[in-house]
Amino acid sequence: MKGVKVDRELILKVAENARLELTDKEAEEFVKQFKDILDAFSQIDEVDTKGIEASMQPVELKNVLREDRTEPSLSQEDALANTEHKKDGYFKGPRAV
C-alpha cells in the first residue's frame, strides 16, 4: 500500500491500540523509521495474487480432534504460582473502568 501517511498522530493511534506507552523520543523515532520500513514493505503490492489463497501456515495441517473427556490440566495453585496479584484463588486485575 503505497503512500501511507506516517505521522505522529498515526504512531500514537497505533500505540494506543497496542497498549504501549511511548516516550516522546520513541514516538519521534518511530515516525521516521516506519516511513522507511512501510515504503519498502509496500513492494508486495506488485505481486499478482488474484485468485491465490492465503497460506496461514507453510505446511498443510489437518484438524486434530480428540474425545471430549476431562483430562488433568494446570491446577489452580500452579496457575497462580507466578503472580503477585491474586485473591481467594483468583487473579486480581486492575479495575475495569
Binding site: M1, V4, L10, I11, V14, A15, N17, A18, L20, L22, E26, F30, Q33, F34, I37, L38, F41, S42, I44, D45, V47, T49, I52, E53, A54, S55, M56, P58
Partner: peptide, 28 residues
C-alpha cells in the same frame, strides 16, 4: 515495541488487506 507497533498497524482496519492478507498470499 517497534515490532508490536508495526504488526498492530499491519492488522488495523484499512491496512489489513494491503499488508497482512497480501503477505499471506505472497507466501503461497
Amino acid at each position: 515495541k517497534r515490532r508490536i507497533m508495526l504488526g498492530t498497524f499491519a492488522r488495523m482496519s484499512g491496512f489489513r488487506d494491503a499488508y497482512y492478507m497480501q503477505a499471506m498470499k505472497v507466501r503461497t
